[in-house]
Structures are given as structure tokens and as C-alpha cells.
Computed example of a mutant assay.
Amino acid sequence: MTATYQGNRQQTALITGASGGIGYELAKLFARDGYNLVLVARTGQKLAQIADDFKQKFRITVKVIAKDLSIATAPDEIFQQLQQEGIKVDVLVNNAGFATYGFFHEIDLKPELQMMQVNMVCLTHLTKLFLKDMVKQGFGRILNIASTAAFQPGPLMAVYYATKAYVLSFSEAIANELEDTGVTVTALCPGPTESGFQQRAAMEDSKLVSGQKIMDAETVAKIGYSGLLEGKTVVIPGVKNNILAQSVRFTPRKLVTKLVRNMQESKD
């Protein structure tokens, strides 16, 4: 274990959506390198199991906070709890997020509002709360999980694609603002990834993922983690994903939208 310190204090990473997928794999990487952790997710029992495992394997401290991030008060509650306990966050990983799938006019409003709250509002709120102290101390890292969805419109996942476009734009903008402060902001933009994401969105039968060889969460996390430590602003895992993300800039938007619609549709 190579413990990472800020001054004489061991650094702490806060990771949302840490109970599985990319969030869990990122937490494991931070733990391996000696960071203390604050793990946030809805499932407190799963987080407790992860915390026990990490404590034994990596000899770090792990704080577990069970919160539903679709509730507007959650970011303030997390921040206040850590303030009261004297826990300073050096790395913020805004990983929590989910999607809905189907025609916009047919999907219930409630889950889409909850998705916007988690994917955009909570991410922005947590960044606002923790960033000020990072700038004050002259050091900090923020990793926001966007997606290759951020680079184009997404019929059948219209709101999800829009939320990820927001995350990318927001991350790039504040990364520029924070130059020379000692604080970096990285947007990780993975393509489809093996996790529980597709099941929750009920999109397992779409051409985008059905029968496709897609990247696993561990690989995505390792690429994102390296990019974060290197201070990169945008990280797109995989050559194919990079090519697709860049090619949309030179393709008529109407055609791009049609192509995405075709990929999103069910194989049936």
C-alpha cells in the first residue's frame, strides 16, 4: 500500500454510487493506494460489507453514508455530517447516476426528475460544497462521471444523454476556472460498460448493448483513475469510443441523431 498524504494527513476520497460498478472499482483503487474513504450509496448494507472488506485488506478508514441522492437535501446532509466529524475530503468522485429508456412522452415524469437530480443537480451541489475547501487548501481532485452519451443527442434516452452533456460541459468549464489553483477536474466519459446500469434502465435488448462486447467496469475505473491522477480534463476509455466521440463533430447533427436512434432501438 502506498499511502497518499496531504501534508501530514492521509488523504480522503468521497465516492458516490460506490456499492457497485465503476464506483466500486474506483473505491477499490483509492483504497489500494492508501486513501481513506467515504462511500455513499442508497444501499447501506452493501456499503457496510464493502467497508469491512476494505478495512481488512487495505488498513484504511472507511466511512459509510447511506443516502438517496435523488432527494434534494442529501448533499447538504452529507457535507454537514462530514464537517461535524472533522473529515476533510481531498478527492470527490461524483459517480452516482442512472438512466431511463423509452420514448420521452411515454416515460413517467417522476423517474426522469429523479435522474436529473442525481445526474446533474446532486453532482453540482456536492462539487459546490467541497470545492471551496479544496481551493482554500490549494489542492484537490474532482472526478465527474459523464459518458460518451455527452457528445450527441440520444433518442430513446433523451434526458439521460442531456444530463451527461451537462456533466461534460460543466466539468470542462470549471476545470478551466481552476487552472493554477492546485485543484483539477476530470470528466470520465465511458461508453457502454458492464454493470447494473443497463438492467436498471431496462435497455438490455437495445442494439447498443445486446450481443456487443463492451468494456468492464474495472477497466473503465483504471483508465479514469489514471486520468484523474494525471490531471486530465476529459478521459474517454477505449480507442473506438474516442473515435466515435470525436467523429460526431464532423457529422451533420441530424444524421448523428438518426444513427444514435438506430443503435438505441431494440433488436426485436
Results as ranks from 00 to 15, higher is better:
Tyr101Ala: 00
Lys254Glu: 11
Ala99Lys: 01
Glu177Gly: 11
Gly154Trp: 11
Tyr35Gly: 08
Phe170Glu: 13
Gln10Phe: 06
Val260Pro: 04
Glu25Gln: 12
Glu204Val: 07
Val234Arg: 05
Val248Tyr: 12
Gly238Trp: 12
Leu47Asp: 14
Gln117Met: 04
Gly102Asn: 10
Thr184Cys: 02
Val239Asp: 10
Gln117Ile: 10
Lys164Arg: 14
Asp76Thr: 07
Lys222Arg: 14
Lys258Asn: 05
Leu123His: 03
Leu69Gln: 02
Cys122Trp: 02
Ala74Arg: 04
Gly238Ser: 05
Leu244Cys: 01
Val209Gln: 12
Glu230Asn: 12
Ala3Cys: 01
Gly7Tyr: 05
Thr61Pro: 10
Thr257Gly: 06
Asn95Thr: 01
Gln84Pro: 00
Gly227Asn: 05
Ser226Met: 09
Ala27Gln: 05
Lys207Arg: 14
Leu39Glu: 09
Gly21Lys: 04
Gly34Asn: 01
Asp53Ala: 14
Asp76Gly: 13
Asn36His: 15
Gly102Gln: 05
Ala221Ile: 11
Gly140Trp: 03
Phe250Ser: 10
Ile65Glu: 13
Lys254Thr: 15
Asn8Ser: 13
Leu37Lys: 13
Gly211Arg: 11
Glu85Ile: 09
Asp205Arg: 08
Thr186Arg: 00
Leu113Ile: 11
Tyr160Val: 11
Pro75Leu: 06
Gly97Tyr: 13
Gln83Leu: 05
Ile236Val: 15
Val256His: 13
Thr73Ile: 03
Leu208Pro: 08
Val38Pro: 15
Glu112Trp: 10
Ser206Ala: 12
Ile78Ser: 06
Lys207Asn: 07
Leu109Met: 14
Gln117Pro: 14
Gln83Ser: 10
Leu255Lys: 14
Leu259Arg: 11
Met115Pro: 13
Ser19Pro: 05
Val260Leu: 09
Asp52Gly: 14
Val248Ala: 07
Val167Cys: 07
Val62Glu: 04
Thr43Gly: 07
Ala217Arg: 06
